[in-house]
Simulated scan of single mutants.
Amino acid sequence: MKPVFLSYSRKNVKDVQEIADTLCAGGIRIWQDIESLTAGNTDEQIRKAIQEECAVFFLYVTDESVKSEFIREVEIKEALNKSKKDETFHIVPLIDMPLEKANQKLQGSMLGDISRYNGVIIHNGETLFEASSKIRKILLKAIIKRPADQDFTISLMTYSRTPGNIQPQLDLDWSRLNFSDKIMSDTIWKTHLLPALKDVKDALLNAGVTLIRLYAKASLSASMAFGYIFRRETGFKIITSQGEQLWTSLERPEKPSGLKINEQSRNIGSKHLGVNLSITTSVDNDLRNYVDKQQLPLRAELFCKPAEGPSRESVPNHNVASAMAWKIGNAVRDTKSKYNITDIHIFGAMPLGLAVLIGSELNACGRIHLYEFNKSESMYYSSWRLEGNY
Rank of each mutant, 00 (worst) to 15 (best):
I368F: 07
Y380Q: 04
M379H: 12
L357P: 10
I71F: 11
T127E: 09
Y339P: 09
N330T: 10
T162H: 14
I34C: 01
W384T: 06
D334Y: 05
S322G: 14
R312Y: 13
L99K: 08
I279E: 05
F152R: 00
D149S: 07
I268S: 09
I95N: 06
L352T: 15
W174E: 11
K141F: 05
I229Y: 12
P297Y: 00
T42Q: 09
P297Q: 00
I368K: 08
I279Q: 05
H345M: 06
L172N: 14
P147S: 07
R288C: 04
A225L: 02
R116F: 05
Q17L: 10
P351D: 04
K217W: 08
L94K: 05
L156S: 02
K198V: 15
D284S: 07
V283A: 10
N41Q: 05
L156K: 02
E69F: 00
P195N: 05
S265R: 10
V56I: 13
L250I: 05
A321C: 12
Y215H: 08
V92T: 12
V315G: 12
P93T: 10
K82H: 10
Q294Y: 02
D202Y: 03
Q32K: 12
E361R: 04
V356F: 09
Y380G: 08
H369Y: 11
S36G: 02
F129N: 02
E64P: 08
K145W: 03
L357W: 00
D292A: 13
S175C: 11
D149M: 00
L273T: 09
L80P: 01
D151L: 12
K182C: 12
E78V: 01
H192V: 15
E35S: 11
I34D: 13
E372M: 03
E313A: 15
P310T: 10
G348L: 08
T153H: 15
I368Q: 06
G309T: 07
M324C: 01
V209M: 04
V61T: 11
P316G: 07
D33Y: 00
S360P: 12
Q45M: 13
W189P: 09
I76C: 01
I30G: 15
D199P: 06
V283W: 08
K82I: 08
R312A: 15
Q242S: 12
R299A: 14
E44T: 15
D63R: 07
E377M: 00
E75T: 04
F70R: 01
E301T: 04
I138V: 13
L302Y: 02
F226G: 13
A216N: 12
M110H: 06
R72S: 10
A203S: 11
P306M: 01
A20W: 02
N12W: 00
L106I: 03
Q167I: 14
N41D: 15
V74M: 03
F70L: 04
I71A: 03
P256F: 02
E251Q: 11
Q245E: 13
P253I: 04
H192R: 07
T234L: 10
I344E: 06
F179H: 08
D21N: 13
Y380P: 14
Y159G: 10
R385Y: 06
P168M: 07
I114T: 08
E44R: 10
H345T: 09
